[in-house]
Structure formats: C-alpha cells, structure tokens
Nucleic acid binder design. Structure first.
Lengths: 135, 135
DNA sequence: AATACCTGCTATAGTTACTATAGGTGCAAG
DNA sequence: CTTGCACCTATAGTAACTATAGCAGGTATT
C-alpha cells in the first residue's frame, strides 16, 4: 500500500501548497534536507519530506518564525524534546499573539473613531488629517 | 512666541521618538524633504518637518505601510484630497485590520487547544507535535 | 526536422522597513 | 593633546521570501 514513490519539486509544491522557490529556499537554509537527484539533476522528494514541509508550513501559518520553526524541528529531529517544553513554547507563543491582537484592536478603535469624526462631505477639511497633521 | 529655531537630527530624533537612521532613511526615500544644512554639513530641521515626521510615525503605528503613508502625504502636499476619500481609505484600512485580528484569534484558539491536549508530563510523547507532525 | 512549450536547474537581485557597521569630520572639555 | 560627542556618508545586513535571467532536456505540434 505504501509505495515509496518520489515527487518532483512541482508535485511537492502542489501537494504541500508551497511554491517552488520557497521549497528551494527552505533547502538552502537547511530547514529541508538536500534531496536525492534524478539523472537529470532534478530534485526527488519522498513522503517524509512532504510531511516535514507540511509541518513547517503549519507552524509558519500559526505565526512561528522560521527560527522558532527550526528549533522545533531540531527537537523533533533529535527526539530529545519533552512534552513540557513544547507546551511551554506553544503557550508563550500564544501569549505573544494575544498581545498583537490587543494592539490591533486598539488601532482599529482609533481608526474607527477618526472615521466617525469625519463628516463625509466633499470639502477640503478633513478631521482625520486634521487630527493627525495640523496643517 | 513661535521662534523659528532649527533642530539637529539628534534633537528631531528625541522630539519625535524616531531613531536617527530612520529619519535619514525617510529622507532617502523622499518621505521627508532634503533639509537645509549647517556650515558643517549637519542637517537642520524646522517645526514643519517635525510635524510631518510625527504624522508619518502615527500612520506607521496605525499599521499603514510606507507606500500608503506616502499616498496620504501626497494628498496633504497637493491639498487635493477630499474628506470622503480620506475617510474611505481609513475604513478600508480598518477592515484589513479586522481581518488580521480574526485570523490571529483563530490561530490563538488553535494553539491553546493544542496546549490543552498536552498532558504536560515529562515524557517523550507530545500530543502537540503528534498533531502537527506524525512521526 | 524545426519549433514551441513545459518543467526543472543555478545564481543573483529585489522586496519592505528598517538597523547596524565602518570609517571619517569637527568641536569642546579635561 | 587626546578623549568624547554628535554628526556625516556609504554600504551591508535583517526576515522571509519572490522574481528574474539564462540555461537544459523532454514532449507535442506543425
């Protein structure tokens, strides 16, 4: 059932949803291993690398930086992690995201407040600009 | 009362809260005008430029990109804007921020859900990693 | 057989919005 | 007289890609 076929970079791109350039970039910065090559020099990937790439993309989507992602991969690779430390990293990261959310909410409130003050006529006096930039 | 004194870049930096390199960078990309120079070649700024810089910093803090900021400055410089268009830009921008907030909230929920599933023992089995990366 | 198209390759430069570094000038104080 | 400070220019580095130039080899069409 589990035939060990190999994917070209184009196939890996389609299967993972990651564009080709980025896959090569991840290889370049050693997030992905150097793959085998076909006689023509084309990269050949296996299931394992597809999983690894998906893992990377998932962490990136969750807002982890590449360096954070690299550290998590190192833990996986070494098999030396403990559940406690992964959990801690996750919670610390979630806390950082909370702060970002709060910040954006404040900014949005400010923007809406400014827009509300604006009387929406076609004149040249804009209370938004006035409040930001006293001409 | 309103003496038209000039500031050095260091003074402008302190008054605006913007670091010196960034002020020079904004000049380089033509967000700030080329200032007069002292006999020694030092930049000399006036009140008007301080206001402009503060305006830029305020927009940046509100999440506008430098290019969006540049467009708003062009409108101010040309005096050709209408209140309606400024208001519209503000609301469009607020909408973009709303989307970011929603996205971050989803991500945070996912992270917390993962952490909750983690049993926090010191073993090598981590439900967080398991859910992300089937070893 | 010649042409065009497709997928892949490498190497390099560009993007955003800064930030940092190297190496220099000129003045003022100890 | 030398140390420190504020300033100068020019250049490189940062994150995380993204795009471009220029090439090779296989397939499909004319």
């Amino acid at each position: 059932m589990l035939r060990s076929e190999s994917y070209t970079i184009g196939k890996l791109s389609k299967l993972s949803g990651c564009v080709i350039q980025t896959i090569r970039y991840y290889e370049q910065i050693d997030l992905l291993p150097k793959p085998d090559r076909s006689p023509r020099g084309h990269r050949l990937y296996d299931e394992k690398t597809l999983k690894r790439l998906k893992f990377i993309l998932r962490l990136r989507h969750l807002g982890f930086s590449l360096e954070e992602t690299r550290k998590l991969l190192d833990l996986v690779d070494g098999g030396k992690y403990t559940c406690r430390e992964i959990r801690k990293k996750t919670l610390v990261h979630a806390e950082g995201i909370s702060l970002k959310i709060t910040d954006l909410q404040k900014i949005k409130a400010e923007l809406l407040h400014m827009a509300e003050k604006c009387n929406d006529d076609t004149g040249l006096d804009c209370s938004i600009l006035d409040s930001l930039y006293q001409r």
